[in-house]
């Protein structure tokens, strides 16, 4: 019987920035939606402590990877939307190359074990 395996904390930490960049490359979004999206796409295997996302977003904004704006939504509430900056697109490309390289090495090694 298949059971969902929680992803190790170290891997969660390392993948936070590339995941945020990838999601924002599809269009602007806000913290809660980013968390829900990641949770849904990973089949609940990848779970962040919700509040910890925000310091990461702020750090990425300070480093010039993303930018933010407050938007008024219904019932008078406000939401902070984040979107990619040019540097963020470059960083995403770099992350993508690195993760692809790691994945291809690992897949190759795991494949050899069954030859």
């Amino acid at each position: 019987m298949y059971s969902a395996v929680m992803i190790a904390k170290e891997l969660v930490a390392a993948s936070t920035e590339p995941l945020i960049l990838s999601l924002l490359s599809k269009g602007e979004s806000y913290g809660y939606a980013i968390i829900q999206d990641v949770r849904r796409r990973s089949g609940d295997q990848l779970q962040w402590t919700d509040g910890m996302l925000y310091p990461v977003l702020h750090r990425m904004e300070r480093n010039g990877l993303i930018k933010s704006r407050w938007v008024k939504i219904e019932n008078g509430r406000k939401r902070k939307y984040y979107s990619l900056k040019q540097n963020g697109k470059k960083a995403l490309k770099m992350h993508s190359q690195q993760w692809t390289a790691v994945n291809s090495v690992l897949t190759g090694l795991l494949g050899e074990q069954y030859v």
């Binding site: 806000y30 913290g31 919700d50 925000y54 509430r77 939401r79």
Partner: peptide, 16 residues
């Protein structure tokens, strides 16, 4: 600012 943002998150989660 962080507090406003966290409250916004909290309200989104409660609604959901």
């Amino acid at each position: 600012v962080p507090l406003e943002e966290l409250e916004s998150h909290l309200r989104d989660d409660i609604e959901q």
